[in-house]
Design a protein around this nucleic acid. Structure first.
Lengths: 296, 296
DNA sequence: GCTCATTGTTTGTCCTGGACAAAGTGTTGA
DNA sequence: TCAACACTTTGTCCAGGACAAACAATGAGC
C-alpha cells in the first residue's frame, strides 16, 4: 500500500504539519514509517483514520480523548450522534441526498431543476438549497457520503444557481454589492445563495468568488464604488478566525461602505461586531436590504 | 499600518511559513517586527513586496538574486519582460482586458455574451476564452491587474460557460468523463473549457470541481462507471508536483479507465507518462475523443 | 437547584537552528 | 552542439521547547 509524505497528508486531511507532529509526540498517533532520509511516511490506513478524526473534531470531540483510540472505537462514536442529532428531514430532501449518494447526477440535476421551476429562485434557495446543504454537511460529518459526493452536489447546485442568476440579466438599481469569501474559505455555495436571494430584488451583485485577500477586497470595493461588501463563512471555518478577519476587514474598509457577514461559522455565537451587519438566516438578508434602501 | 502574523502572510502570499523563515535567515528579508510573545508580525509593505517576489519567482527568477533587492529594483525587473514577452494580442482581447482592469463588469459580461453568440460555444472557448485567460495570467504576472480583477474575470466567464453547458441538456452517449482538479489546484477555468469543448459532442461530462483527493477520485470513478478521468493544471501549479500526482493517480486507477491530463503546467515539458493521454491544446481534446470513440 | 468567577488542563501554533536532496548553473571535454 | 560532471542554491523536513487561548472542572454565593 502507498504511503504519503507529511505535506500530502496535510493537503488530504486538512490537518497542519505542526499538529500532525505534535499529536505523534503526545498521543503516540499517528506513527508514520520513516524513509531513508528519516522523513515521515504515513501509511494509507493511518491517513484514513486521520480523516475520520478530523470529522470527529468538527463534531466537537477533543483530540486527547479520541486520537489514541482505536479505529473501531471511533467509528462507534459516529453512530450515536447520527441517531440523536439526525434531523427528521423532508422526504424530498432525503430523496435528493440519496441521488447524491448514488452518483445519479442526471436525475439529481433534473430533480433540482424541477424544484427550481416549481418554487421560483428565491424560495428554491431558502426552502430547498439551504436545508439540503446543511443536510449534506451533516451527512459528510457522519461519513455517510464522501468528498466526491459533496463536490458533485456543489457543482450541480452551482450550475443551476449560476444559470438562473445569469438569466436575470443586469440591473441598474442600487445597492451595489461586492461578494466574496476570505482567504481560507473555499466554499461558495453560501455566496451563491445570497446572490440568488438579492439579484431578483434588483440588487447589483458582483461576485469575486472565493478567497480574495483583504487588501484586494478593500481596493476593489473602493474602485468599484460599492455600497456593500458581503462575505460568507461555511461551517468548516473556525469561528474565531472568522471574527478576527471580519474585524480586520471592517477596519480596512471606509465607513461609507457597509459590511455584511453571514454563514454557518457565525451561527450561535453571541458575539457582535460594531458596524457589521450580521446575517443569521437568509430572511435577514431581505430585511437588511430593505433597511439599507430606506436609509440611502 | 496593520501587520500580519506569519500564518496570514502564508495565506495571502502563498509562500509557506518555512520558506518565510528561511528567507529571513538567509537573505535578511523579510524582517518582521516581533510582538510581545516574540512572534513575527509582517508590516503591510513587506507583505506587498513578498507578493511582488512571488510574481517574479513565477516568472523564473531565483530567490537569491531578488529577495534582498530593493522594491524599486524589483519593479524595474517587471518592465523589461513586459516589453519582450508581450503578446501582440488581438484588439478584441485587449479591449476585454481593459474592461476587466476597469471593473466594468456589466459591459464585460455583455461583450463576452456577444462573442459567445457570434462564435458558438466551442469556438468561443478555443478562440477567445483560452487566449484571454493566458493574457490575463500574464497581465497578473506583470502586475497590471490585481487578484480582485482576475477573480472578477474568472467569475464572469464561469457564469457564461456554466449557463451554456447547462442549457445543452443531458446526453446519453459515451464516453462518460469524470473531471476534477487535484489537491492544491483551485483554478477551474481549464476544466470548464474542457467541458465546454466536449459537451457539445454529446460526451457525458461530470465535474467534481476543484481539489478532490486522489482516493476520492478513484472511488468515484469506479462507482460511477466512468470511462475517462480528466484532470487539469493551471500555470501556477508546479510541474514537478503535477507529474508526481498524475503518476500516483494512474497507478490508483483501474487500467480500464483512461486518464487525460492537460493544462499550462504540463506545457513545454517533454516528459510523457505511460498510459496517460496528455492534452497540450484544446484541439487535442477532439482528436483524443475521436480516437477513444474509434476503439471503444 | 442554578449562575458566575476562578483555577487547572488541553491544544494548536509558533520558535530556533540544523540538515539534506532535488533542481538549477556553470564548466569541461568530445 | 551536446553530454557529463561538480558546485551552489533552495525548499522542505526534523527535534524539542514554549506559551496563550480555549476548554473543563471546581467552588462560592444566592
Amino acid at each position: 500500500m502507498s504511503a504519503l509524505p507529511i505535506a500530502a497528508v496535510e493537503r488530504d486531511t486538512g490537518i497542519p504539519k505542526d499538529t500532525l507532529r505534535v499529536w505523534e509526540r503526545r498521543y503516540a498517533f499517528p506513527q508514520p514509517v520513516r524513509d531513508d532520509k528519516g522523513e515521515r511516511l504515513y501509511p494509507a490506513e493511518q491517513v484514513e483514520k486521520l480523516r475520520l478524526l478530523r470529522r470527529l473534531l468538527d463534531q466537537g470531540h477533543r483530540p486527547g480523548n479520541i486520537v489514541s483510540a482505536s479505529t473501531d472505537a471511533l467509528a462507534a462514536l459516529l453512530e450515536p450522534t447520527s441517531e440523536r442529532g439526525r434531523t427528521p428531514s423532508d422526504p424530498g430532501i432525503a430523496a435528493l441526498i440519496e441521488l447524491v449518494r448514488l452518483h445519479r447526477s442526471a436525475e439529481l440535476r433534473a430533480t433540482l431543476q424541477q424544484h427550481l421551476v416549481k418554487l421560483g429562485l428565491q424560495r428554491f434557495v431558502a426552502e430547498l438549497v439551504a436545508p439540503l446543504s446543511r443536510a449534506i454537511g451533516e451527512a459528510w460529518l457522519q461519513g455517510e457520503i464522501g468528498v466526491a459526493e459533496e463536490h458533485l452536489f456543489t457543482e450541480q447546485v452551482q450550475n443551476l444557481l449560476r444559470s438562473s442568476i445569469n438569466s436575470l440579466g443586469p440591473s441598474g438599481r442600487p445597492p451595489r454589492v461586492l461578494m466574496t469569501t476570505l482567504p481560507g474559505e473555499e466554499h461558495i455555495l453560501g455566496l451563491l445563495m445570497v446572490e440568488a436571494t438579492l439579484a431578483p430584488e434588483g440588487v447589483q451583485c458582483i461576485s469575486l468568488g472565493a478567497q480574495t485577500p483583504l487588501a484586494d477586497i478593500t481596493q476593489a470595493a473602493r474602485d468599484g464604488r460599492f455600497d456593500i461588501v458581503a462575505v460568507s463563512f461555511s461551517a468548516a471555518f473556525p469561528a474565531r478566525r472568522a471574527f478576527l478577519a471580519i474585524e480586520q476587514l471592517r477596519d480596512a474598509l471606509p465607513e461609507s461602505i457597509a459590511l455584511w457577514a453571514g454563514g454557518a461559522a457565525l451561527q450561535g455565537k453571541r458575539k457582535r461586531i460594531d458596524k457589521v451587519q450580521q446575517i443569521a438566516q437568509l430572511d435577514d438578508l431581505l430585511n437588511a436590504l430593505a433597511a439599507w434602501r430606506k436609509t440611502n
